Simulated assay, not measured.
Amino acid sequence: MKDLLLKYKEVILYLFFGVCTTLVNIVSYAVLTRSFGVGVMASTACAWALSVAFAYVTNRIWVFESKVRSFTGVCREIASFVGCRVASGAMDIFLMWLLVEMMGFSDMIIKILSNILVIIFNYVASKFWIFKKKGQ
């Protein structure tokens, strides 16, 4: 069992922090829309920004254990991370607009489904581009 955990440590941590990131996204979205009456699109954008900040820290430190320490390297890493999250955030916003605003589906159900797609996209981008280890 321990060997399996070590072998899949990165994936397990990514899934754990992905779920946490998704919770940050969904909870902040729900608070903004339900408690403060903020619109769907603005709430989606704010929830995205909060979840990106949370995800960068957790991915850098615990999931991919980035060894980049130079100012330039960290800036490049952040820019790559945010750039990929802009793409996945645009996907999230587009899906919310299309499926909630235009087609009338339940906002919370679509938010959850959209976040599943976002997690998959972000893992692939992080693993093979942003936090790519030398020799990979």
Rank of each mutant, 00 (worst) to 15 (best):
residue 1 M to T: 12
residue 1 M to W: 14
residue 2 K to M: 08
residue 5 L to V: 10
residue 5 L to G: 11
residue 6 L to C: 11
residue 8 Y to I: 09
residue 10 E to V: 06
residue 13 L to S: 11
residue 15 L to K: 08
residue 15 L to R: 02
residue 15 L to N: 07
residue 16 F to S: 13
residue 19 V to M: 03
residue 20 C to K: 10
residue 21 T to K: 03
residue 22 T to K: 08
residue 24 V to G: 13
residue 25 N to W: 07
residue 26 I to E: 07
residue 26 I to L: 08
residue 28 S to T: 14
residue 28 S to D: 13
residue 29 Y to L: 11
residue 29 Y to N: 08
residue 31 V to W: 03
residue 32 L to I: 06
residue 33 T to D: 05
residue 33 T to V: 01
residue 34 R to L: 09
residue 34 R to V: 08
residue 35 S to L: 15
residue 36 F to G: 01
residue 36 F to S: 05
residue 36 F to Y: 08
residue 36 F to Q: 05
residue 37 G to E: 10
residue 37 G to M: 09
residue 37 G to H: 13
residue 38 V to T: 10
residue 39 G to W: 01
residue 42 A to W: 03
residue 43 S to E: 15
residue 45 A to C: 14
residue 45 A to R: 10
residue 46 C to Y: 04
residue 48 W to F: 14
residue 48 W to V: 13
residue 50 L to F: 02
residue 50 L to G: 06
residue 52 V to C: 05
residue 52 V to T: 12
residue 53 A to D: 05
residue 54 F to R: 10
residue 55 A to S: 14
residue 56 Y to F: 15
residue 57 V to L: 14
residue 57 V to R: 11
residue 58 T to G: 12
residue 58 T to D: 15
residue 59 N to F: 04
residue 59 N to R: 06
residue 61 I to F: 06
residue 63 V to C: 09
residue 65 E to P: 14
residue 67 K to Y: 09
residue 67 K to P: 13
residue 68 V to F: 02
residue 68 V to Q: 11
residue 69 R to F: 03
residue 69 R to P: 04
residue 71 F to R: 01
residue 72 T to R: 04
residue 72 T to Y: 03
residue 72 T to C: 06
residue 73 G to E: 03
residue 73 G to H: 00
residue 74 V to C: 04
residue 75 C to E: 07
residue 75 C to D: 07
residue 76 R to K: 12
residue 76 R to D: 12
residue 77 E to G: 05
residue 78 I to D: 01
residue 80 S to I: 03
residue 80 S to E: 06
residue 82 V to L: 03
residue 84 C to M: 06
residue 86 V to A: 02
residue 87 A to L: 12
residue 87 A to E: 04
residue 89 G to I: 06
residue 90 A to K: 00
residue 91 M to H: 01
residue 92 D to S: 05
residue 92 D to C: 00
residue 92 D to M: 02
residue 93 I to V: 08
residue 93 I to N: 07
residue 94 F to P: 07
residue 94 F to N: 09
residue 94 F to C: 11
residue 95 L to S: 12
residue 95 L to I: 12
residue 95 L to P: 07
residue 97 W to D: 08
residue 100 V to C: 02
residue 100 V to K: 00
residue 100 V to A: 00
residue 101 E to D: 14
residue 102 M to P: 04
residue 104 G to W: 00
residue 104 G to K: 02
residue 104 G to S: 09
residue 105 F to I: 02
residue 105 F to L: 04
residue 106 S to P: 02
residue 107 D to R: 02
residue 109 I to V: 13
residue 109 I to F: 15
residue 110 I to H: 00
residue 111 K to A: 08
residue 111 K to L: 02
residue 111 K to Q: 05
residue 112 I to C: 02
residue 114 S to M: 09
residue 115 N to T: 12
residue 117 L to D: 07
residue 117 L to Q: 06
residue 118 V to L: 01
residue 118 V to F: 00
residue 119 I to F: 15
residue 120 I to Q: 08
residue 122 N to E: 09
residue 123 Y to L: 07
residue 123 Y to G: 05
residue 123 Y to Q: 13
residue 123 Y to E: 03
residue 124 V to D: 11
residue 124 V to G: 12
residue 125 A to S: 13
residue 125 A to F: 11
residue 129 W to N: 09
residue 129 W to F: 13
residue 129 W to L: 06
residue 130 I to F: 03
residue 130 I to W: 01
residue 131 F to H: 13
residue 131 F to L: 08
residue 131 F to D: 09
residue 131 F to G: 09
residue 132 K to M: 06
residue 133 K to W: 07
residue 134 K to G: 07
residue 134 K to V: 11
residue 134 K to P: 01
residue 134 K to H: 10
residue 135 G to W: 10
